[in-house]
C-alpha cells in the first residue's frame, strides 16, 4: 500500500525539462550569447595578452610597490609578492598566471557590478530579500561543475563560459554582505540622515554605503576567492590558465607538475586575498 503511494506519481521529468529550457534559452538568446562570446572573448584574450606583453619584472615591481603602500609601508606582503611571483615565473607558469589573473579579475569585477546593486535592493525591500535569498542559497550550494554545462551551451568553450560559471558561483557573497552591511548601519545614523532631509539616493551614497564599506569589502574578498577557486573547475571547459595545468597533471597522474601549478594558485590567492583585505582595513 505504502509502496503504491510512493509509486503513485510517476517520475517528474525535471532533467528533461531543464534540458529543454536550456536548449530554448540557447536558441532564443543566441543573438545575445553569440556577440558576448565573440566580443567578450576577444576582450579577455586581448587583456590577457596585454598583461603578458608587459615584462614580468615590471609586473612584479608594480605589484610589490602596490603591496608596500597598501599595507601601510610594511615590507611583508611586498617581499612575499616578489618572491611568489618570481617563483611562478621561474616554474615557467607566467603565461598561465596572466590568463588566470585576467579570468579572476574580470569575473570578480562583473560579480561586484552585479552583486552590489542586488545587495542594496535586498536591504531596501523585504520582498526582494525573500526572493533573492533562496536564489543565492541555490547558487552557492549547487555543485559548481553543474554550471559548466549550460555555460558551454551558451558560450562554447574557453574563458567566456568560465567567467559565466564563476559569476554564478562567486556573486552571492557580495550580494549577502552588501545587504548585511547596509542593514547593520546604526538606526540613529539612518535617522540622522533622514531627519536632515536626505533623499533616498543621498542617504544611500552619503551614509549607508560608506558605513557598510568594510562589510561590503569583506564580501568582495570572498567573491574574489571563490572566483579563484573556479579557475580549476573552469579549465574543464577549456579556460586557459593555472587551472588547466592542474587538470592536465591530474589526468596524467603527474604529482610534481600538479603540485607546482597548485602552488601557483596558492601564491596568487594569498596575494589577492591580502590585497583585498588591506583595502578593507584601510581607514
Amino acid at each position: 500500500m505504502l509502496n503504491n503511494l510512493t509509486e503513485f506519481i510517476p517520475r517528474i521529468p525535471i532533467a528533461e525539462g531543464t534540458a529543454w529550457f536550456v536548449g530554448w534559452l540557447t536558441s532564443t538568446f543566441a543573438f545575445l550569447f553569440n556577440p558576448i562570446k565573440t566580443y567578450f572573448g576577444d576582450f579577455m584574450e586581448w587583456t590577457a595578452n596585454l598583461l603578458y606583453s608587459i615584462p614580468p619584472i615590471i609586473v612584479i615591481l608594480i605589484v610589490a610597490l602596490a603591496a608596500f603602500f597598501l599595507t601601510g609601508k610594511k615590507y611583508g606582503l611586498a617581499a612575499f609578492s616578489v618572491f611568489g611571483l618570481w617563483l611562478v615565473h621561474n616554474q615557467g607558469l607566467w603565461e598561465d598566471l596572466t590568463f588566470t589573473i585576467t579570468l579572476v579579475i574580470l569575473a570578480s569585477v562583473l560579480s561586484v557590478i552585479i552583486g552590489v546593486p542586488f545587495g542594496i535592493l535586498m536591504s531596501k525591500s523585504k520582498t526582494a530579500d525573500a526572493i533573492i535569498r533562496p536564489v543565492l542559497d541555490f547558487m552557492q550550494t549547487m555543485p559548481a561543475f553543474v554550471y559548466l554545462i549550460p555555460a558551454v551551451a551558451f558560450f562554447g568553450i574557453g574563458m567566456v563560459p568560465g567567467v559565466f560559471a564563476s559569476l554564478i558561483f562567486a556573486t552571492p557573497p557580495t550580494v549577502r554582505f552588501t545587504n548585511l552591511g547596509i542593514r547593520q548601519v546604526p538606526t540613529e545614523l539612518v535617522e540622522a540622515s533622514d531627519a536632515f532631509g536626505s533623499t533616498g539616493a543621498q542617504k544611500l551614497f552619503k551614509v549607508e554605503l560608506p558605513m557598510a564599506k568594510a562589510t561590503i569589502m569583506a564580501g568582495i574578498n570572498q567573491t574574489v576567492m571563490l572566483a579563484l577557486s573556479m579557475v580549476v573547475i573552469a579549465s574543464m571547459i577549456g579556460a586557459p590558465g593555472l587551472g588547466r595545468e592542474v587538470l592536465s597533471a591530474l589526468q596524467r597522474a603527474q604529482v610534481g607538475p600538479g603540485f607546482v601549478a597548485g602552488l601557483g594558485i596558492v601564491i596568487l590567492a594569498i596575494i589577492i586575498d591580502r590585497f583585498t583585505q588591506n583595502v578593507n582595513t584601510k581607514n
Binding site: 546604526p186 540613529e188 545614523l189 535617522e191 540622522a192 533622514d194 531627519a195 536632515f196 532631509g197 536626505s198 533623499t199 551614509v207 560608506p210 558605513m211 564599506k213 581607514n283
Partner: peptide, 22 residues
C-alpha cells in the same frame, strides 16, 4: 515638502549623537 521642512525648518539632535564616523 516633508524633505523641505526637514531641511529648512526642523532639525534633530540624537541621544547617541548620530555623527557619521567617516
Amino acid at each position: 515638502d516633508l524633505r523641505e521642512v526637514r531641511r529648512k525648518k526642523m532639525s534633530m539632535v540624537f541621544q547617541k549623537f548620530g555623527l557619521f564616523p567617516f
